[in-house]
Amino acid sequence: MSRSLRRGVLAATVLSLSIATLSACGAGNDAQTLEVKPDNAATSVGDIKIQNASVVTQPDVNAKGPAVISATVFNNGTKDQKLTAISVDGTGQSAKLSPTTGSGPVTVPAGGSIVIGGKGDASAVLASGREAVKDGNAQPLTFTLSSAGEVKINAYVVPAKSYFAGYGPSQLPQPSGSASPSGSDKPSASGKPSGAASPSGSAKPSGSAHGGH
Rank of each mutant, 00 (worst) to 15 (best):
R6M: 11
R6H: 06
G8I: 13
G8E: 12
A11R: 13
L15K: 04
L15E: 02
L17Y: 06
A20F: 11
T21Y: 11
T21R: 10
L22N: 04
S23Y: 07
C25L: 14
G26P: 06
G28C: 03
D30G: 08
T33Q: 08
L34F: 04
N40G: 04
T43K: 03
I48H: 05
K49H: 01
K49S: 00
Q51V: 08
N62T: 10
K64T: 15
P66R: 03
A67Q: 03
S70P: 13
A71H: 06
V73N: 12
F74A: 05
N75A: 12
G77K: 05
K82W: 07
T84G: 08
I86G: 05
V88I: 14
D89R: 11
K96A: 15
K96F: 13
L97E: 11
S98H: 07
T101S: 11
S103A: 10
G104Y: 02
T107A: 02
A110I: 09
G111K: 03
G111V: 02
G112P: 05
S113F: 09
S113N: 11
I114G: 04
V115Q: 10
G120F: 06
A122C: 03
A127S: 15
S128Y: 12
R130I: 10
E131C: 00
V133F: 02
K134S: 14
G136Q: 05
A138T: 01
A138C: 06
L141R: 06
T142N: 05
S147V: 03
A148W: 00
A148S: 07
K152E: 02
K152Q: 01
A155S: 00
A155M: 01
P159W: 03
S162P: 01
Y163N: 08
F164Q: 08
G168A: 02
P173G: 00
Q174F: 09
A179Y: 07
P181C: 03
S182I: 09
S182P: 09
G183S: 15
D185G: 15
S188Q: 09
A189P: 07
A189S: 14
S190G: 13
G191D: 02
G191P: 05
S194F: 10
S194G: 12
S200Y: 15
P205S: 11
S206W: 07
S206M: 10
A209C: 12
G211Q: 11
